[in-house]
Nucleic acid binder design. Structure first.
Lengths: 149, 149
DNA sequence: AGAACTCATTACTTTTGCTAACAGTATCTC
DNA sequence: GAGATACTGTTAGCAAAAGTAATGAGTTCT
């Protein structure tokens, strides 16, 4: 229990889990504070990007995808709709459901966000070696899969 | 804006930042829900592990390390102290400061947590290839450095 | 047709972090 | 050495974000 090195801690799956968990928690907190467009929450941004990638989705599908409970997604969508970044249409087959998709402005915002994202994280990434960035590229994809499974 | 692949999105630092941000946010949310000892928050667990690794630390040092404001750390420490996982002593040289360290029970809990962490994340990690796990090992260290800088 | 389930929402609560303001202590400057 | 200044930890009050429980509308199963 003295001062185990990181490599010692990550030899096992459990140790890796511990380290990863702390690292992800810390970075998430940091990101929450440093977000570029302060008026958009982390969750809202995530939904915008998910919609940009997948097109139309139902609120339920979005909630599942973002690993959030449906009421939370209702709120996120309401906030995005208020700002006209997103709009809802009725599901053609099932009148309980809705389909959410980006508005023109939503698409513009995603694009603009991509362009001008010289924010905190991008800067930090710039300080890394190409090798490290390559590692993160691969890791991002794995992390995404992890939270899906 | 149709369906760009991940590799397209991560070619640039900005694109990588976007993907990483979403992935980290999603995983952090997921971890919050899936944590092994439900009575311990993510922040509390992080502090426990930090103390296990660094020994005695002042509240201020802990706050800086966890990227949290001092009042938040006060609460985290208070909660841990309430459960007698941690205890405080006066700093020998500076009477403003305190030193926080794990109690015997805190050490036990960290050990037990490590042992019985067959929880969600560990299981998920088990499904990865050795290569992917190696990537995450490296990534964990980089992510940690990112949130420090 | 009725029971059971699903989807989205509302209402309420909990968690978690923040800023501002403070009391006590240390350090710097004259 | 005395007073100003800065730092440490805490309290108080607030805000953001997510969770659970309950509800109304719609669908599916038997």
């Amino acid at each position: 229990m003295k001062h185990p090195t990181v490599s010692q801690q990550t030899r096992t799956d459990a140790g890796l889990a511990a380290v990863l968990r702390v690292a992800v928690g810390r970075l998430a907190r940091r990101l929450r504070a440093q977000r570029p467009d302060a008026s958009l929450s982390l969750g809202q941004t995530a939904v915008l990007f998910t919609l940009a990638r997948h097109g139309q989705m139902t609120p339920r599908a979005l909630a599942d995808h973002e690993k959030v409970q449906p009421p939370s997604m209702t709120r996120i969508i309401a906030a995005l709709e208020e700002r006209e970044l997103v709009h809802r249409t009725k599901h053609p087959d099932d009148r309980r459901q809705q389909l959410v998709e980006l508005t023109e402005e939503g698409i513009r915002l995603v694009r603009a966000d991509r362009r001008r994202r010289e924010a905190w994280l991008t800067q930090r990434l710039g300080e890394l070696t190409p090798d490290e960035k390559a590692t993160l590229r691969k890791a991002a994809e794995i992390l995404d899969r992890l939270s899906q499974s």
